[in-house]
Amino acid sequence: MSIDYLDGNALAGPLGELFAVDVTAAIGTCAGCGAAGPVAALQVYGPEPGLVARCPSCEEVVLRLVRTPDAAWLDLRGAVSLRIPMPETRS
């Protein structure tokens, strides 16, 4: 794998179009190897034709995002889960 990549910080703008919370601070678990880490630490290739984020441990694709003029395609099949930090609520 070449070193011509960015990291998950580069997803903050494109994902910020979609989500109310900052997904780059979420902890993702890779479906390939089970490694867990922040989305900001994924290795990101792109931006054309789309953004492809790979696991820094096993290099499997964790997330893909393609933006068309009228839609955003988000493929998360490489992520077992995303743990998204939320402000604490008291009941």
Binding site: G8, A12, G13, G16, D22, T24
Partner: peptide
């Protein structure tokens, strides 16, 4: 300009 973005770094 749009932003700010990024909550990790």
């Amino acid at each position: 300009i749009r932003g700010p973005v990024g909550g990790w770094f």
